[in-house]
Design a binder for these strands. Structure first.
Lengths: 119, 119
DNA sequence: ATATTTTGCGCCATATCCTGCTCATTAACG
DNA sequence: CGTTAATGAGCAGGATATGGCGCAAAATAT
């Protein structure tokens, strides 16, 4: 039950809910109760309940809980590092770009990127 | 510059800052400006700025931005799935555990888990 | 069965986040 | 160089998250 949902189409609420369930299972697998985890994470037990129930939380809270559960390293690989992909960047000028550029010459207000992972 | 920081010891603020920088580089590698990304993510440009500057944000915002950048799949592997590790769980009773248990028989209030990744 | 512990949730006050605006600064372009 | 677009940042008001309380319900152990 509760198989891996499709993150690309799931709503933010659904994703938060999924993450919450995983965190709860993670906690239970270590046989820790919410009170202990809360103390270790530096948040209130009430907040732990909210996290596991998929209610809205801050990134700060997520980080604290993940660290308390010993799974903080997952965040290190959360995002792909663009620097490991020099080819793409170089196409748009040689040096480190600090700002985007979308020339509004005429009426070209329609832009699309989305590429990459889409297909 | 800005090498991968050690998430296990970094403060939540530092981690948020790191994530923000990665998101910004990701956006720039696609040559999208904050306004476009904001529209695509369904948040304000002001919030995009906050995200990239490592200021406090909600998990909801992070999810929206990641999806807009096409890197939402990273969240799917953010947390380890305890179900792929049946051995550990089975030790504490045969069925799915729904609550932790820390017998407070005498004065054993000191508990430690941390194991696993710690050592 | 009873006893014990864990968890969910409502409430309210406070803290933090989000938005929409504005304007100054700065990068990128020709 | 000058022009244009992109970004950072302050601010006020509304929206949301958090903490701490309590108590009822549920899970676990005896």
């Amino acid at each position: 039950m509760a198989q891996n949902i499709d993150y690309t189409v799931a709503s933010p609420e659904a994703i938060e809910s999924e993450l919450g369930q995983k965190l709860e299972r993670l906690r239970l697998s270590k046989n820790i109760n919410q009170t202990m985890l809360a103390k270790e994470a530096g948040v209130s037990r009430r907040t732990i309940t909210r996290v596991e129930n998929g209610e809205g939380i801050s990134l700060d809270t997520l980080i604290r809980v993940m660290r308390a559960l010993g799974v903080i390293d997952g965040l290190a690989t959360l995002l792909p590092d663009p620097t490991t992909r020099p080819v793409e960047r170089i196409k748009l000028g040689g040096h480190e770009r600090k700002r985007a550029r979308t020339k509004k010459t005429s009426d070209a207000d329609a832009w699309t990127w989305e590429s990459e992972s889409g297909e």
